[in-house]
Every structure is written in structure tokens, then in C-alpha cells.
Design a binder for these strands. Structure first.
Length: 349
DNA sequence: AAGAATATCAACCGCGAAGCG
DNA sequence: TCGCTTCGCGGTTGATATTCT
């Protein structure tokens, strides 16, 4: 295969944009004869192009069933959802959007959706919250904002209920943040350094702030970091058990709102990890289950099915994404069955 | 108004997979 | 089974359009 001459290097074959005349010739020929062998087509049709160029022009532009115009909100959400499951399998994604081409979807992803996810603090590759320190800090702001929202809301309640709700919200915010930090510590050594730099003596993050936001002081966090690279011991994980989620809240929200529910599930995962670590101290921290989609790491659907529970891969309620962010993206009407069908279809391709 | 910067998207390129003798 | 051809995919490029300064 190496060194094969590209088909369009043949002398005299035209490249570049197609003229309306060329389009007309190609459409006319295919309508009359079908495309048959793409390689033979240009000669038969009387086009000074290579077969590859003809195929591309036909499939991406001239095909009669192509839908033109802007992507709808529904299409946009579908692409995001499909990308979370399939990764950069543009033709597979296009197969679920009638009239759209893989090229169009790829361009749309690269120019719009990627940026949109980044702006929302999500990694467009993994669809998880970004693990770099900047994002952690931006998440902090969101957690605090959310907590403040609860504070405003609780002004309307009696003082006991208000205090309890406020405290619960803060705990959940801590938990979510902690989950993100755990991911950083466990999976991304480069970010660890950056994070530690942020947490260092010259850091803009004050001890008070860390204490308030996390219930951890700098030295405790750094200690945790040092001891958790590569071989986390159950001792350093057990340090985190100071972050208790009130039992009544677990009961109340386990079947409740997706926001709180996702936090609770995150907590559950941490708990399970702690349990597992207690029984065997060799489980690496970065084996934390994927809470959002597995996506491109699941390079094939088969692989994906082996690696992850499809529900974990697709169920919005199992995400660890910051509050409702992910929920906003997921079509509510797209249920588990949809994803099961999708995965089945892809497996059978 | 003009030039620079940025966004968009059609088309190309190279590679791996599939088909076939 | 092997080697060649063809197809289709995903990443990238570059011309053009749009927005910003």
C-alpha cells in the first residue's frame, strides 16, 4: 500500500471546486446509469476528474436526498448524544441523521459543537467535565453560585429547614468538586502539577477558601495528592470520608431531581470505590467508573459494550457533570431504550 | 473604509478495510 | 492465501465569507 500514487496525480485531471457544468454532467450520468465503478465513471461520463472526486461530490453535495440548511436544535442534540457514544465516527453519526452527510456533521462539530462543549466546561473528546485546573476553578464558581441560589431560595423557608437545606446543598457542591479533583488526581499527572501550582503558596486560592469550599486545607490536599499518585492507599481515600452526605437527603433525592441525583450517584461511586479499596488496596484511583459517556476511548462499540455499562455510557442521570449542564444537552425524550437500540444497531453494522 | 483576524465548509489526502481474481 | 484494486472514512487544508478593529 505504501507509496501508492494518489489517483488525482494523474496528468490532466482537474482538481478543486466543481463547476455547475461538471455537476450537471455528473448528475445526468448517475441518474441514467447509476455510479457503478467510481473509478470508471469519469471517463464514461466525460468528466476530467478522478473517481474519488466524483464520488465525494456526489455523496456530499449532489445526492438528491441531501438536506440543506442549518442544523436544528434536535439535530444538534442528537449529534452531541451520538458523539458521546460513537466518538468521531462521522459516517455512523450521519447514518442517524437522514439527509445529512458525514462531512457536514464533521464540519459542524468542529466549528460549532466543539466550542459549545468547551464553553460549557465539557471536554469535547470525552464529554466529561474538563479536568484542567482552570475548569476546576470555574466549577468552583458554579458550585458556589448554585449554593447561593439555594441560599436565596431558603430565605423563604423557616430557619431550621433553610439551614438544613443550605448545609445539604453545600455538602453536595463539595462532593461534586471533590469528585472532579479526584479525577484530576487519579488520571492526569500533568494537571496535578498545574493544580498544585494553583494551590501553592503563591496561589490565589486562600486557605480559608479551600477550607470552606472543600473542608480540606492546603497541606491536607497536597498530602492527599502526594500519596495518591499511582498507588492510592485506602488511608488517603479515607481522609475524604469527612464529606458525608446526609442520609435523609440521600433518601429524599435518590429518585428525585437529576441534579441532586447525579451528585448522589457520584457519592455512591466514591463510596463504592472506598469499599473496594478497603478490601483491596491495589485498585488504582483512576479506575473510577466513567460517569459520563465513555465515547472515543470506547473506540468500537464492541469494546464499549465490554468496558462499560451502556447505562453508564448514556444515562443522563448517571453523569458527574456540573449540575444540569449535561442534562441540558440530553434529549429528555431519548430514553435508555433508544441508546440500547442504537448500540445494537452499531454492533450489527 | 480597509486591512486583519476569524469562521466556515467544500474538497483533498492518505490510510485501512473490503472485495475479488 | 496472496496481492492488487476499489471504496469509504476521518483528518486536514485552503479558498471564501464574515466579523472585528
Amino acid at each position: 500500500m505504501m507509496g501508492r500514487t494518489p489517483c488525482c496525480d494523474e496528468i490532466g485531471l482537474k482538481k478543486g471546486p466543481w463547476t455547475p457544468e461538471e455537476d450537471a454532467i455528473l448528475v445526468d450520468y448517475i441518474q441514467k446509469h447509476g455510479h457503478g465503478s467510481w473509478r470508471a465513471l469519469p471517463k464514461l461520463a466525460g468528466l476530467n476528474r478522478c473517481g474519488k472526486s466524483c464520488r465525494l461530490r456526489w455523496t456530499n453535495y449532489l445526492r438528491p436526498d441531501i438536506k440543506r440548511g442549518k442544523f436544528t436544535e434536535e439535530e444538534e442534540q442528537l449529534i452531541i448524544n451520538l458523539h458521546a457514544v460513537l466518538g468521531n465516527k462521522w459516517s455512523a453519526i450521519a447514518g442517524h441523521l437522514p439527509g445529512r452527510t458525514d462531512n457536514e456533521i464533521k464540519n459542524f462539530w468542529n466549528t460549532h459543537l466543539k466550542k459549545k462543549l468547551l464553553q460549557m466546561g465539557l471536554d469535547p473528546v470525552t464529554h466529561r467535565p474538563r479536568l484542567d485546573h482552570l475548569n476546576l476553578l470555574s466549577n468552583l464558581q458554579q458550585f458556589l453560585a448554585a449554593t447561593n441560589m439555594v441560599t436565596s431560595f431558603t430565605n423563604t423557608l423557616d430557619s431550621n429547614a433553610a439551614l438544613r437545606l443550605q448545609s445539604d446543598a453545600t455538602q453536595l457542591a463539595k462532593l461534586q468538586l471533590l469528585q472532579n479533583i479526584l479525577q484530576v488526581l487519579g488520571t492526569n499527572p500533568a494537571s496535578n502539577l498545574e493544580l498544585l501550582n494553583q494551590l501553592g503558596p503563591s496561589s490565589s486560592i486562600s486557605d480559608t477558601f479551600l477550607h470552606e469550599a472543600l473542608g480540606l486545607n492546603q497541606s491536607k490536599l497536597q498530602e492527599l495528592y502526594k500519596s495518591s499518585i499511582g498507588f492510592p492507599s485506602h488511608q488517603n481515600l479515607s481522609n475524604l470520608q469527612t464529606l458525608e452526605v446526609p442520609h435523609h437527603l440521600q433518601q429524599h433525592y435518590m429518585n428525585g431531581s437529576s441534579t441532586i441525583n447525579s451528585c448522589m450517584q457520584s457519592r455512591k461511586v466514591v463510596d463504592e470505590q472506598l469499599d473496594a479499596t478497603n478490601s483491596s488496596s491495589t485498585i488504582p484511583l483512576n479506575s473510577l467508573p466513567n460517569l459520563v459517556s465513555a465515547s472515543p476511548q470506547c473506540s468500537t462499540v464492541k469494546e464499549m459494550e465490554n468496558k462499560v455499562n451502556p447505562n453508564e455510557c448514556s444515562n443522563p442521570s448517571s453523569t458527574s457533570t456540573t449540575f444540569e449542564m449535561w442534562g441540558d444537552f440530553m434529549c429528555e425524550e431519548v430514553n435508555d431504550d433508544y441508546w440500547k437500540d442504537l448500540i445494537d444497531q452499531e454492533s450489527n453494522r
